[in-house]
Design a binder for these strands. Structure first.
Length: 650
DNA sequence: ACGGTTGAGACA
DNA sequence: TTGTCTCAA
């Protein structure tokens, strides 16, 4: 349910930028010969020509609509060019669109606080830029106005017959008798026109924009004149706009709440809400939603533009409709593996490009039960701490699925005999990585991070984590989660590791850095360590690694030394073991791991990235370690560092 | 249960 | 915090 936010007496300038039929534009940029031709993007060409997910404006003229099948589109527009969404691992791959969206964001974010609202939409807070322009180069002082700005639509501006629209717009933009807020909007119009021109020049995409005092109105405005146009909403036109705006057109009211307003209160237009007191609306829809409704009826919306250029989660999913439903565990496993592979790749990219790590893995599934009466029950979603590494994510996802399936099937533990089908079917699967946070990189932020992590490392939290990990991700049914095991986990031996780098020879460090990455396995309790557990594109640091998957500490030490690192430990290897449950046969190394060294931002590449740990506490400690390493090396401007870490909290 | 895939946010 | 639900494009 929508929630009202305290509203600053809106002197803000907020823009909503909406890319025009974005996927089509991305494909047309890839294949410029398609420019100007009727084009649509389809996915899954196999059935009836695939489903349209984006339709270019040339094709819309022929009546081609989103969610037509490809064949239908050919029917109404035989000359249409249908471009398929890229496919990877048997599913749609939207990465090229995500990347194109990032290009646009990086252009727009130069001008003010920028929020990436979706793959093709952005909110901008241009208040500061507009205030600055108003103070320095107010539109009324300009004799020449950008032509793109002159093509703007000004909501509520009288359009007299025979009058030149651009002259009208110019007059509005340059009015000297306008109030402060309208003058700010006029500045916003000029700024957005310029930004749109930059997007077109630098990324070759057209977009439409809405400019107003809040997100809600800007969002409405950006959709009013498409493609490649912009619309401004002055205060004076708000009432008229909302008066005749169908309630369902308002963001957040397109669903059940909007329907309820229509059926319960007879509200068909946003303006109809004005009849109801705030109290009345609160009685119907609760405090928050009631106030929110009261506000939007008046064009008031306090939502801030969040300064966020990157997504808060990554997901990979696929549906298996009707006859394609998955009915066996191996088929589920196959598709989960594909989804997890894609997710893992995107997580790795996020780590490399943005220094962010995700901490939670969630699995969603849609299922039906063919025979049982309670076949309407929903498949429960399940989550667990996220461990980096493709095979780990795959394992964890599969375990989450099986936990969900057991719960879904409930007491009906139908033993599936041989090839007999089991009575359930999976029609949708998705894996999501969330709780993404930056790896800290400044001294103060590191201290903050440290304090934050310290709590996470409390013994009770450790035990809780471990407990949850073992319950939600238990690896086999007959391994008990006994109290004894739990206690053992709490008595994890203390570990300290020190890495020294005595080299002051920049030349050799550069050489090291040029190797792109260095993996230092600390310890492995597993005999079959697959390379796939690690980052895939990095070279093996040790020759013969495959044949020595579990190097002894002494070997490790000598190898590391050869990389001008030394590895020290206060304890023999046997005591460094972090005990887990007695699953020696599965690929679950307790504490093993490796550091990647990459840091394009420093002249000497010196970032050490720790990842892929068995529980968040250890991972957190190592992330802290990473931060310290970076700071020390950056601050000292040299390569000699000494770092120590305490892996197990007090 | 051919609008699929992806994402955000509120709430209990 | 986790899991569910809603909404959007």
């Amino acid at each position: 349910m929508p929630v009202a936010k305290p509203v600053s007496s809106d002197g803000r300038v907020i823009a909503h930028i909406d890319m025009d039929c974005f996927y089509v534009q991305v494909e047309q940029r890839k294949q410029p010969e398609l420019r100007g031709l009727p084009t649509a993007v389809v996915q899954y060409n196999s059935w009836k020509g695939g489903a349209l997910i984006a339709v270019g404006y040339e094709a819309r003229k022929f009546g081609v609509k989103r969610s037509m099948r490809g064949d239908e589109a050919k029917g109404v527009c035989p000359q249409i060019h249908l471009v398929q969404v890229p496919v990877a691992r048997g599913k749609a791959d939207l990465n090229s669109y995500r990347e194109a969206g990032s290009e646009v964001v990086s252009i727009l974010a130069r001008m003010g606080r920028c929020e990436r609202a979706s793959i093709d939409e952005v909110y901008l807070d241009l208040t500061d830029a507009a205030e600055t322009m108003l103070a320095e180069t107010s539109p009324e002082s300009l004799e020449v106005i950008d032509d793109e700005a002159l093509k703007s639509h000004i909501l509520g501006l009288k359009h007299e017959d025979g009058s030149d629209m651009k002259e009208n717009v110019k007059a509005w933009l340059c009015r000297s008798d306008a109030d402060h807020r309208d003058k700010l909007l006029a500045c916003g119009v000029l700024i957005v026109a310029d930004l749109r021109r930059q997007v077109l020049q630098e990324a070759q995409f057209t977009c439409s924009a809405g400019i107003s005092h809040n997100k809600m109105l800007s969002k409405l405005a950006s959709a009013m004149n498409k493609p490649a146009q912009q619309t401004v909403v002055p205060c004076s036109s708000v009432q008229g706009l909302l008066e005749s705006l169908p309630i369902k057109k308002m963001k957040q009211l397109g669903g059940k709440l909007g329907s309820s307003l229509q059926s319960e209160l007879g509200v068909n237009f946003v303006g109809d809400l004005l009849q109801f007191s705030e109290q009345k609306l609160q009685e119907y829809y609760g405090i928050n939603t009631g106030t929110w409704l009261w506000n939007i009826a008046r064009g008031i919306s306090g939502e801030e533009v969040e300064g966020r250029l990157l997504p808060k989660s990554h997901g990979s999913g696929k549906t298996f409709p009707g006859p394609r439903a998955l009915k066996t565990l191996p088929s589920v496993q196959h598709w989960l593996n594909e989804l997890c592979e894609e997710l893992s790749e995107r997580l790795q990219t996020d780590l490399d490009q943005n220094r962010r790590i995700a901490r939670t893995l969630t699995l969603h599934a849609r299922a039906y039960m063919s025979s049982e009466s309670d076949s309407h029950k929903k498949f429960p979603s399940k989550s667990c701490p996220l461990r980096y590494g493709t095979t780990k994510i795959q394992e964890d996802a599969m375990n989450l699925f099986q936990a969900g399936l057991r719960e879904y099937l409930g007491p009906f533990k139908v033993k599936t005999q041989g090839n007999q089908k089991s009575g359930w079917g999976i029609t949708g699967l998705s894996v999501i990585a969330s709780k993404i946070s930056d790896i800290p990189s400044g001294t103060s932020s590191i201290m903050k991070y440290f304090q934050g992590q310290d709590q996470l490392c409390s013994p009770s939290k450790l035990a809780k984590d471990q407990f949850e990990l073992e319950n939600s991700c238990s690896f086999s049914e007959n391994e008990s989660n006994s109290t004894l095991n739990l206690v053992e986990h709490m008595k994890l031996p203390e570990e300290e590791a020190t890495i020294k780098n005595e080299s002051s020879d920049l030349e050799s460090m550069e050489h090291q850095a040029s190797r792109n990455s260095l993996e230092v396995p600390f310890y492995s309790s597993v005999s079959s360590l697959k390379r796939a557990d690690f980052s895939q594109e990095t070279p093996l640091p040790f020759s013969g690694r495959e044949s020595h998957p579990e190097p002894k500490l002494t070997e490790l030490q000598s190898e590391v030394s050869s990389e001008e690192f030394t590895f020290e430990s206060g304890r023999p290897a046997s005591e460094q073991r972090v005990k887990r449950n007695s699953l020696r046969d599965k690929g679950t190394p307790s504490l093993l791991k490796f550091f990647r060294r990459v840091d394009p931002s420093c002249s000497v590449q010196n970032q050490v990235v720790a990842q892929s740990f068995d529980n968040t506490n250890i991972r957190s400690s190592l992330v802290l370690f990473v931060g310290i390493a970076r700071v020390k090396m950056c601050r000292e401007g040299r390569c000699g560092i000494t770092m120590s870490m305490r892996l197990i909290p007090r």
